[in-house]
Design a protein around this nucleic acid. Sequence first.
DNA 1: ATGAAAGCGCTAACAT
DNA 2: ATGTTAGCGCTTTCAT
Lengths: 337, 337
Amino acid sequence: MAQSNKPISMREVAELAGVSIATVSRVINGLGGFSEETRKRVEKVIEENGYIANQAAKGLREARTRTIGMIVPDITNDFFSTLALQAERAFADEGYSVLICNDANDAERGEHYLRTLISKRVDGIICISGRTTFDEDEVLGNVPIVYVDRFPERSHDIPRVISDDLRGGRLATEHLIERGCTRIAFMTGTHSALSVQNRGIGYEEALAGHGLAADPALRIELKGRVRRFQEARETLAAVIASGVDFDGIFAMNDVIAVGALLALRDAGIRVPEDVRVVGFDDSIYASIATPALTSVRRFPEEMAKRGCETLLSLIEGNDVELEDVIPVELAVRESTA
Amino acid sequence: MAQSNKPISMREVAELAGVSIATVSRVINGLGGFSEETRKRVEKVIEENGYIANQAAKGLREARTRTIGMIVPDITNDFFSTLALQAERAFADEGYSVLICNDANDAERGEHYLRTLISKRVDGIICISGRTTFDEDEVLGNVPIVYVDRFPERSHDIPRVISDDLRGGRLATEHLIERGCTRIAFMTGTHSALSVQNRGIGYEEALAGHGLAADPALRIELKGRVRRFQEARETLAAVIASGVDFDGIFAMNDVIAVGALLALRDAGIRVPEDVRVVGFDDSIYASIATPALTSVRRFPEEMAKRGCETLLSLIEGNDVELEDVIPVELAVRESTA
DNA sequence: ATGAAAGCGCTAACAT
DNA sequence: ATGTTAGCGCTTTCAT
């Protein structure tokens, strides 16, 4: 099982081909300045010896690694994995690899990852995190970075691609109101990112716009750092048991909404007859839930694409727009029929 | 937005601290051989200038990058994202970063990624792929690699961590038989990985063991490269429309099983009364489906953990066991009640 | 058309 | 205790 003999280097290729290392470099990079015969000879040696260029060395010399760092809260959540998949693909198309880091909404972990990425000298960073606690300017130094979906409060002039969360919250809530709900609960996290808070603001605005009060008893907070449907299920079960009255639920994301759906079913409460439910993200969970979940559709593929484009622009030293807001729309399904 | 001044190097730290570069290196790596006063001076300079060591250079020198490459078929599938999350965490704990590559079951893409990983000189590779078409020995050179969940047919002495797929297929099928099913369909991919084929073999063995014939009409194949529940839904809908009779379904994974569940509901077929369904993976989809899906539980966290341990052993030059089979068990839920 | 040599940022002998 | 130096594998002037 022991494996040892290290890969052949450019110098060795040069020796085997009887040319200088510079010539090998020229051939490999197609820079011209070599005869057809030399090219063939060099390529033959490369082929026969399975030479694969050492990008680490190349990167050191060129001062760029062709690697992008990506920080996500939870790759296990369909919304983020879709985002990550798309981003990875988009970067791969441009010749970049992606280092994916899960910070699980843990600021400390996130900061550590950021340092790691910088020490690896990634060419840029895609960051989905609203919880940076330290002074970024100092740590980040000069790595191009773009925030996607979430961003820290004090992110001065760092570009971001976000969705229209406030409008999403408003759309969801207004939809519930139109369906006749008057006591609408909002399920969210304890200390959410700004983006998520905006969904709550949209919710409150919609309520206010229709003369409804935002009853604090209807704000249901989940403590966990990472969203798991079981926690939502248990938390809502407790709320139901406590006798709080509600006829609609707006959940901050689909994972929570699905947990809510299960808790309602456990309690024998019918959806949508007794309680209507709206989620956020329009992820796979919304489609496979029963009843199928009405959800605020976002466009993770588009967000990933824009994020990549922005980051690549930044890397190339171009100017980019600071805030790129991707619209949302409501996907109406059975849970609010 | 333009960012330029590059990060400070070790040489600059040395100059600012009035010591040699070697001393800085010693301080940073805590190798001793410097006075307390020197240490303080160096650390002060590092602190004040936000020096972050260049791992690319360090890696070049040390001939190791502290980076692991990971090839997955579809990070969007809960099973794989759970595996990836756990692997990333385990490696992070050991000081490694992980480059995640999605090959979407595309051999060409997979091969390309493999080359990229090798050119980046990753210290090892975790590979979930059964579709390598080329001669690995040549391309892989000497990178330690371990296959998880899937492995190519000709992977000679490359270690793997897999689950007991054959037994899983048998368990699922026998369970359906016990519940009274006699015409059990098997939903799978057209050209599946060996691991998946084994689930089919388990299915056939179970049928044979109970004197049931494996009707070719009951083998339902999905063409897509990546498993999407919509494809499964549509494919099964067509089968139903064609009048094929069945009273049980064993799906090669939960995504497909959930698609089947939806198709059955669309057709007004009751689960489990008319048709019973069993999935594979016991992923989140099984838990949130309605009816909740009976599924063959695997242990992606455990598989990831073992895979990491094995790879790290390999990297350290130790011997490892060639095949590590993780047991499976049946999680019985409403879909087969 | 080709080679020699400097240097990217670091570590690790080998000095002193 | 600290410095000097030779590379790691590459790209890139600058010669020839």
